[in-house]
Design a binder for these strands. Structure first.
Lengths: 157, 157
DNA sequence: GTACCTGCAAATCTTTTGCACGACA
DNA sequence: TGTCGTGCAAAAGATTTGCAGGTAC
């Protein structure tokens, strides 16, 4: 779980350098995966990433994508997130942030780090625990679904 | 996503009543599953619950447990949690609480609701979002693993 | 009696692994 | 050249579904 510095994570080439310097090899499938990760939006599943990789390198197999994602995660280049109930999603560590996820409709809101300041401080103080709010989404109910629920709970609809 | 009142969730029989009143039937497999849920500790997987159910009612099939868990969740009797990377776990809604989960070693700490007060207020104010910190674990690093990481990062070990 | 529930088997979906071949350093 | 990486197939783990028969109400 080694910590890579930000400048090492700024481009496809710099990450390939990082891979080489840790004893790995710079291969076509790794380059293609990194290009996709740097190009694409957030929270892509392994399947989505593999589909995009195949556009650049048609022979790259899904299992190779999984293996490379694991390698990149160990190097600290990407993280995976558990959002909702679907498959795991991946993204560059330099682009992570916390999320609010509606349990009911699945809508996802990006939460600013400031929102977690008190929680981070409290966990540190009370449990000596360093909270990283980016790995799992914070679940709850969005405004719409809360309204729906409250209306549904009215005595006589 | 109807909200059951607490007194309806206080015992196996009261939940069976709730099931009947919502058009469902009181069956042996449902009773056995509820007995297991009321008897057992927290965060049990479907597999674990099915194993315990089979001790009371050997013919109950795993798929029936899944179907009944889904039904109970829809009635608001239980919730499921995503803790760490393993299978989903279930527990009675009356016994839920938030968790801190170490990304590195998997240790799980029970977090008091007070720890989330500021987050809950801030999400409500800024996003009109009602946070329920019990559904997903809050991930991060426990004291031990943080120490380990910090030592690993020292210039010369 | 009828709608709901269940056991069983099989399918589905996501992810992992074994193995032999090929490619990077 | 030797190790690491890859494609492919197959396995594994968790969950869902189709169907035919059984059961609560």
């Amino acid at each position: 779980v080694k910590n890579a510095h930000d400048e090492e994570l700024s481009s496809v080439e710099s990450v390939l350098d990082l891979i080489r310097s840790s004893g790995g090899r710079s291969t076509g499938s790794r380059r293609a995966l990194l290009e996709v990760l740097f190009d694409s939006g957030e929270h892509r599943t392994a399947e989505e990433l593999a589909r995009a990789v195949k556009l650049r390198a048609p022979d790259v197999h899904l299992s190779t994508v999984y293996r490379n994602l694991e390698e990149l995660e160990q190097l600290g280049v990407i993280v995976h997130n558990h959002l909702g109930h679907g498959p795991v999603t991946y993204q560059l560590v330099t682009r992570t942030h916390a999320h609010l996820l509606c349990e009911n409709c699945g809508v996802r809101l990006e939460a600013p780090p400031s929102m977690f300041r008190a929680l981070v401080a409290s966990a540190r103080k009370n449990f000596d625990f360093e909270v990283d709010p980016r790995h799992f989404a914070i679940s709850g109910l969005c405004a719409n679904c809360r309204r729906e629920r409250d209306e549904g709970a009215r005595p006589a609809e």
